[in-house]
Design a protein around this nucleic acid. Structure first.
Lengths: 209, 209, 209, 209
DNA sequence: TATGAATGAGGTTTCATTCAT
DNA sequence: TATGAATGAAACCTCATTCAT
């Protein structure tokens, strides 16, 4: 491995460090309450260093989501290409989400927040484009499966984009909503079991009688 | 009407003015970007005055949501007590939401944001309690209908609280998600039609085959 | 005096306090090295307060110069309208400048700095307009006198705007240059006597032989 | 040429590279807005390297001016030693300045800024001394010519140092002032023609009637 | 009760400078 | 000697909140 390569790798590692730290802080405090200094401190770096890797706070935050979307997109595409029943594919989607939620509930919540958020202003064109593309890709894969279900005569024949939106929106909604109930009522975490119920309902709802 | 009563009424009116102004500003700018001065200005009051009616910015914001939750709770309860089929009740729930979204999309989005949000820290016990109660009431009414459906043998027999969560979460998710797509892609507003699809799917999903 | 008037006056007084403090600090430290906190501290105010009166650091700095230009413009116009010889008018200009320099050398230096400076970017249109107008007015009055001299056959007949520029530029240059020598050599202040020499030279230079 | 000498020469060349780059950047951006990184980048070096050749940003900036002063001093001395009329010598001074302005208007402006500037604080004694000496030398040459004029009975007999200051200050002032008007009013560049007028006036002003 | 000027803590961001390689 | 990633101090500015009137 040449020096150049080693440096590139080192740089990527540092970038990853920052992303990890940011994830942790944003998760706990939310976008506005999290400070760059906290994030720097968590990454065991100085504030200035962060700005060598990310243009500003907003772009750092968005980068987290892009990373998740990339991962999600990959996982979802894997499912799409499997040789299994359509309903089963939807169940696999559910599992992908549950896995993600399992890994770090806050990642997911951050992602949904970004999309429904107030920010989205200071992003560079490049990052904005990445966000759109990755988002579209994950979403597109879901639509594809819905269409497959319709074509095979298994799913009801509604507007497939809207149907995919329902699926994705329900994921997001259930996660956000049940998560918020935890905060309000301090109940134990039943996001996962609720998601399972959600998918049971939705899959049945999608099917032709 | 005595002087005391008149004063109380006057006070309530002023409070309502502030809430209306806050709604307008929060809708457009979001929680963090909205400033107390803007809100005061919109209410034709001075910043200081707002603090005579609300403990702080966060509590003002929460009050909006409580108001919506109250209204929502009332509407939902009306539906619960109607002498119509269970499925139809769910459809009516949907219409209640669509009405609300129609009236001001941002109200609803604000509500969902609150619940999934970063705030929820500086609230006084009293406001927190109100929030919980009103939330629980709206939610409870939905659960009740789900249970009714189960008891009548129409709905599948899963954990009814979770089923209600799916319903509510899907509302929220679809609204947030489709709304965010508007921002990202500038597509025309099809939140409402998506919601109709969502409910078609969910109602069918809830039913026993 | 009504309440409104008193408040306006109070506001003006506060504004003046800030300007005075800023003058002091900018004089000693220059634009970039001066900090808003220092200025606030010198004005016995908090940093935030300054921003109630001035949009930003740059506009505060510019306001100083506008104030001087206003004063200068008035003094110069007074001279223009006097019923005295043209050469004498130029001498009076010199005295106006010497007075100003006497009052606060740094004021003048600040003014020249602004005009030859790197900044001039964040100014609001309004302030920019004021700056131009006041600058043009003072300058215009000088041109007027030059023209008068030419018309009366006393001054050489060159491009009068350029001649006025020479006059003004020489003021500025002598002040800046001799002032800088003070810094370099710690000589005692002979700006004033140099200015007198300068005007003797320039007046004779302006005259037809 | 020994190794030592070659190294010295190499070092001087590198130093010159940095100075050239710095000149370019300072010209366009001014002292404060120019960054060391930009300068390093323009010199195709890394920031750290600059600090091997210059103590700090201020000293780098000052070095530019010293270089100009050196050049100026040489040119002025050349004029002093010419066998021509005194008035013509002054005109040659003017041409030297116009040449310099022609070559890079910003160099000159930078020089004047330095002298009237906010910096001049972090300079090492050595650099400070150089600055003083070179400045004194250029200035001294001008004084010498003024004195020559006085001795020959051509120029009025005022304090010759002050007269030289007027000359130099007028240069600086006209350049700075007319240049600033360009910025304010976007008029076309007439610095040079104004300088010519300036010298016409000043030369005549210096002469005995 | 209402005001609104003043506060001042705290946030983001920049950039001259250092130092391990 | 040269590098350039990292530093971290310090600056500008915002805005929720207070309090004298």
């Amino acid at each position: 491995m040449g020096i150049y390569e080693r440096k590139q790798r080192e740089k990527q590692r540092r970038r990853k460090d920052i992303i990890n730290a940011a994830q942790k802080i944003f998760s706990v405090k939310g976008f506005n309450s999290a400070t760059m200094e906290e994030i720097a401190s968590a990454a065991e770096l100085s504030p200035g260093t962060i700005y060598l890797y990310f243009k500003n706070k907003e772009e750092l935050h968005t980068s987290l989501s892009i990373d998740i979307l990339k991962y999600l997109s990959i996982q979802i595409h894997k499912v799409v290409n499997l040789d299994i029943h359509v309903e089963e594919k939807i169940e696999r989607f559910r599992d992908v989400f549950i896995d993600l939620y399992d890994h770090d509930p806050n990642i997911l919540i951050n992602l949904f927040h970004l999309q429904s958020g107030e920010t989205l202003h200071n992003l560079s064109d490049e990052v904005m484009e990445q966000l759109k593309q990755n988002s579209a890709q994950a979403h597109g894969a879901i639509i594809q499966v819905i269409k497959e279900g319709i074509e095979k005569g298994i799913f009801i024949d509604e507007h497939p984009v809207a149907m995919a939106d329902v699926l994705w929106g329900s994921y997001a909604g259930v996660v956000l909503w049940v998560d918020s109930k935890k905060k309000l009522n301090n109940q134990k975490d039943f996001v996962k079991s609720t998601l399972i119920t959600a998918f049971k309902i939705i899959i049945q709802g999608l099917q032709k009688k």
